[in-house]
Design a protein around this nucleic acid. Structure first.
Ligand SMILES: [Mn+2]
Ligand SMILES: [Mn+2]
Ligand SMILES: [Zn+2]
Ligand SMILES: [Zn+2]
Lengths: 142, 142
DNA sequence: TTACTATTTGATAATGGTTATTAATGAATC
DNA sequence: GATTCATTAATAACCATTATCAAATAGTAA
């Protein structure tokens, strides 16, 4: 979703297009690494020195309500934001916390099979695989 | 895991068997509803009026380190505790938050297929399905 | 362009769940 | 029963998130 699309989307919803809002939306909608609110705040401060953490949170909640992003709560209490709303597997390093998304036709087929067995119509899902990433593996083996 | 097993397990690990510890372990290891620390605290206060929330947390962390329970962080910031360490699907009502575990041979087969495609050796996983439970469905339809 | 208005922002305070601290307690051992 | 050291309970500290509200501003219309 590019800047133009975001502007149109906000306007359609009757929301004002502020520079902060645009920056936060562009940022999170393009990121693949599931950042926290604090991380977004820190990265945007360079370009928007007066931006407030409260605005980050408000915008993230807005995007969540508009179903453009999802929140992922973790067991250390942190909440990370994921702009991929489609079915996918979050590959999470149990050591460093890095995440990447994994999505193939096979995952979808297998997931549909589980759902038909469960016999429910889900309104959402979350699939995490915790593993040790290559970087962390290499550190351990040195 | 019954009381006797828990006592032996704690002794094997060189941990003292206190009445509080035993109560907390028995409670969480037998519950299927993924309670929060606060819920455990409230339910144990009847029988143990002086029990402290700090002790609840310490014991839960202990059980987590001993790999007898897992923490599940949610996107409202709450953390719930699950004594089922085997592969299973958490069926979570998106309205009322109730959870039950779903586990079948088929789920395992399907998951193994996904893992072999991913080509990683996971150290853990989490599978959530969000849906509307029967109770919440009925409330809406009245 | 200017004036108007409702929304949004930023600064700050408040909230609430989790963790840290520490003196008192009590389980395990002899 | 005495000793020892892990554990507990009470309390304070911490910190991420939310609430508050006056100031700023986007959108709209004169
Ligand atoms: Mn993801
Ligand atoms: Mn479960
Ligand atoms: Zn890693
Ligand atoms: Zn429900």
């Amino acid at each position: 979703m590019n800047t133009h699309n975001i502007i149109n989307f906000l306007r359609e919803k009757g929301l004002k297009v502020t520079s902060q809002r645009l920056a936060i939306c562009s940022f999170i909608l393009s990121r693949k690494d599931h950042p926290t609110a604090e991380q977004i705040f820190q990265e945007l401060r360079d370009e928007y020195p007066t931006i407030s953490l409260g605005t980050i949170y408000k915008t993230l909640h807005l995007l969540k309500d508009l179903r453009l992003i999802q929140e992922l709560g973790f067991n250390n209490g942190s909440i990370r934001y994921d702009p991929d709303m489609e079915l996918h597997v979050n590959m999470i390093c149990s050591k460093c916390g890095k995440i990447y998304d994994y999505k193939t036709k096979n995952v979808k087929n297998l997931w549909d099979a589980i759902l038909s067995e469960l016999n429910v119509k889900p309104v959402g899902q979350r699939i995490d695989v915790y593993y040790e990433c290559d970087d962390c593996k290499n550190i351990n083996s040195t």
